[in-house]
Amino acid sequence: MEGIAIRLQGLRKSFGQTAAVAGVDLEIRDGEFFSMLGPSGSGKTTVLRLIAGFETPTGGSVELAGRDVTRLAPFERDVHTVFQDYALFPHMTVEQNVAYGLKVRRVPRAERLVRARGALAEVRLEGYGRRRPAELSGGQRQRVALARALVGRPRVLLLDEPLGALDLKLREQMQVELKALQREVGITFVLVTHDQEEALTMSDRIAVFHQGRIEQVGAPAEIYERPATEFVASFVGTSNLLHGESAQRILGSPGTYSVRPEKIRVLKESALADEPDLAGATGTVAEVVYLGDATRFLVDLDAGGRLTALQQNLETSAEDVAAYRGARVRLTWHRRHAVRVPGAR
């Protein structure tokens, strides 16, 4: 049976007049790779800091493995953090950095060394123990921070935008490594990120934050394909919504629907598309964006509203797609791909 690693109940945190966290209830399971996704200022980092104990909540409670730790100091919680800018101690060597947590907990020197080296090996940094953080590259520092947080085998590892400072290539590589590492050590990871792709790639589950509240919690596919609110629909993936009047005309019922761009096919206006499980609408191409492997069409619908469609460039080239600008087109998609957004007005 899976235990609950973290339980947040009615968690609130205000800074002066501003409510950074406005009532959050959340359960994170043992061994889960959990992401808190949201734009900056959505309260996700504050929630992380509340879990770590760097902030005390204005209201609500934090439980770690069934124990109420709301009023406990960071050093009394079995949680370690990987900081956004790593927060490595500049006056210590890599090895000393990694061993610091063990030293504080009075682990004997010899064991400390073995475990620190082991942790460095886990993040593939053998032989870097004697260096100073300043002598390492960004990616290496990131891994030291990871090793430092992991070496004590905490119940929960908190990661605050750990990949934000890395360049794209390295970031993608680290995403894979992080996920592999998590599987290997089996510790609960809580990742804070504003990068939906990062969250989607690595997480078992995702919580989407907006204005201090959680909009939706779910597996990546759930979040992506069945966004619970308009905000989730627009923040995760490209905003592609059909509202009221136009939804009524195109789909036959009012409400707000989300259609992911890659699910939409762009056809000539004259093309017939009256299969029963297909929906469709006509419109004019307002803009064409050539992306290399794909092309993005922005289409103003005759029924009102605008949709974005993404087409793989299977046969078309840059010159071909440019000709579409201003053209009349027909957009079609499977009816099941038009997902009703329940939380929307």
Partner: peptide
Amino acid sequence: NLLDASADLG
């Protein structure tokens, strides 16, 4: 954040 980091490590 170094203060946080130290406290975080116990």
